[in-house]
Design a protein around this nucleic acid. Sequence first.
DNA 1: AAAACGGGGGC
DNA 2: GCCCCAGTTTT
Length: 206
Amino acid sequence: MEKERIALLIQKLEDSAGAAEFPIVTQLAETRRDPFLILISTVLSLRTKDEVTATATERLFSLASTPETMLELSEEEIRQAIYPVGFYRNKSRQIREICRDLIERFSSRVPDSLEDLLSLKGVGQKTANLVLSLGFEKDAICVDTHVHRISNRLGLVSTKTPEQTESALQNVLPRRYWSRYNTLLVSFGQRVCRPLSPLCSSCPLC
DNA sequence: AAAACGGGGGC
DNA sequence: GCCCCAGTTTT
């Protein structure tokens, strides 16, 4: 019964997502299927709105789209490309360190294991899971603020922190939905179920 | 002025 | 668990 409810929920989310626009970062992810782009844009997204993140990602990747070429950019060049994302001074340094690390330790490829991803500078649980999910289509759930908020609003879980949500979802949500869950919820969270002034009147779930 | 934005790290 | 980090926009 709970399974059927979840299946119906996912179906409704998929229907509404197909009829509308995905968030820009997710669009980039869908079109490019490039783990490196996913990784960098996720790093940029920390404390930053989606549209700003997308603009910064596009500007940066128009200058360089591989670890090698990106490492050739100076911190100043990266700073200018990604402004005004939050923490842009730290991030320009961090991005160069990640590029250097990818080149030296992973032959210029983004690793596809949780452990290796976590070993990169400034990459934590959520960033790593998002790269696995969006970049490699693996069974991972990135419980960011959107996923946390909406999972509770939908009544799938009843939790206080994103960490609690992550473990709770692993028990509730069938594994076959994991890789789609992020895309669907983040899309839904930005289009409709927004943190402030949610568009409840046009909610596809009601 | 405060809250918000797809956190991470150190302790 | 708590606290710090630190840039900008929105309310």
